[in-house]
C-alpha cells in the first residue's frame, strides 16, 4: 500500500467520524462521545503513517509539493483538534472542524497536486524544523478560524433571539471567545518562532526569498495586530472572530500563489 492509500483511508475515517457525530446529535443528546474521538484519532494515526511513508520515500520532510503541504497542515489541524478535546470540551467543534479537514484531504484526490516535486529542495534539519513549526502554527490558526465561525453563528442566534436546531448546542460565546483567543496566542507564537527560524537558517545558508518573506511578514502583522487589539480589549468578541476568519481566508487564498512566485518555497 502506498503512502497516498493511507491518507485516503484516513479520509474515510474522518467522513465516518463526521457522520457519526451528526448521528449522535440527531439522536439522544450524547454528542460528546468517546467513540467519535477514537475514530478521529484512528484517522489521524493513518494520516500520520501515510505522511511518514512519504517522508521515507522521498527522504525529506513531506512538504515538497502542494499535496504534501496540505496533508501536513491538515494533519496539524487534527492534532490541535484532538488536543483541544483533551483540555476543553467544546461541543460541536468536531461538526465545524471535520468538514474543513475532509475538504482539504479530499483535495488530495486531484492527482495534479501530487505531481511536481521540488527535487532540488535543500535538505537541512533546521529548514525542516522551520517548515514544521510554521505549518503547525497554521494548524492552530485554522482552528482559531473555526472557533471564530462558531462564535459568529452563536452570536447571530443570540442577537436574533433564536435557539433552535443543532446550533442550540453551541458553547457559550464567552467560552468560544476565550478558546479563540488562546488558539490565536499559541498559533501566533509558533508562527513567530517559525519565521525567526526561517530568517536565521535562510541567512546562514545564504538563501533569499523576497516574495515569501514579504508575505510572511504580512501574515505575521495581520495576526499580530489582531492579537494586540484583543489583548488590550480594544477588540473583543465578534470583530476578533471575524478577524481570525478573514486572516485565515487570506492565508488560504494566497498561500499557493506566493509559493509559486517564490524561489525557495516553490513546489
Amino acid at each position: 500500500m502506498s503512502d497516498r492509500d493511507f491518507i485516503f483511508y484516513s479520509l474515510w475515517v474522518y467522513v465516518g467520524a463526521f457522520l457519526y457525530s451528526l448521528y449522535l446529535i440527531q439522536g439522544r443528546g450524547r454528542w460528546e462521545s468517546r467513540g467519535h474521538t477514537a475514530l478521529v484519532a484512528i484517522g489521524w494515526l493513518l494520516h500520520g503513517y501515510g505522511l511518514c511513508l512519504r517522508a521515507q520515500a522521498i527522504n525529506h520532510c513531506p512538504i515538497t509539493n502542494l499535496f504534501e503541504v496540505v496533508m501536513f497542515i491538515t494533519w496539524a489541524v487534527v492534532l490541535v483538534y484532538l488536543m483541544m478535546g483533551l483540555v476543553w470540551r467544546v461541543s460541536l467543534l468536531g461538526e465545524f472542524t471535520l468538514p474543513l479537514v475532509i475538504a482539504c484531504v479530499a483535495s488530495g484526490l486531484i492527482p495534479a497536486f501530487d505531481h511536481h516535486r521540488a527535487e532540488d529542495m535543500v535538505r537541512n534539519v533546521w529548514l525542516s524544523l522551520h517548515a514544521a513549526i510554521a505549518l503547525l502554527s497554521y494548524g492552530a490558526l485554522a482552528l482559531a478560524g473555526v472557533t471564530g465561525a462558531m462564535y459568529l453563528v452563536q452570536e447571530r442566534q443570540l442577537k436574533a433571539h433564536r435557539m433552535r436546531g443543532i446550533f442550540a448546542r453551541l458553547p457559550a460565546i464567552e467560552q468560544l471567545d476565550r478558546i479563540n483567543y488562546r488558539l490565536l496566542v499559541v498559533g501566533f507564537a509558533f508562527l513567530t518562532v517559525g519565521i525567526v527560524f526561517g530568517f536565521v537558517v535562510g541567512a546562514a545558508l545564504m538563501m533569499k526569498d523576497t516574495p515569501k518573506t514579504i508575505w510572511s511578514l504580512v501574515v505575521w502583522a495581520l495576526y499580530g495586530g489582531l492579537l494586540a487589539a484583543r489583548m488590550t480589549n480594544r477588540l473583543r468578541g465578534r470583530k476578533v472572530a471575524l478577524g481570525s476568519i478573514v486572516a485565515l481566508a487570506f492565508v488560504l487564498a494566497t498561500f499557493w500563489g506566493v509559493n509559486m512566485l517564490s524561489a525557495q518555497h516553490r513546489f
Binding site: Q154, L158, M163, L170, P171, A172, I173, E174, Q175
Partner: peptide
Amino acid sequence: ELAEKIFG
C-alpha cells in the same frame, strides 16, 4: 439559560 449561553 440565555445568560449561560453568553457567559458560560
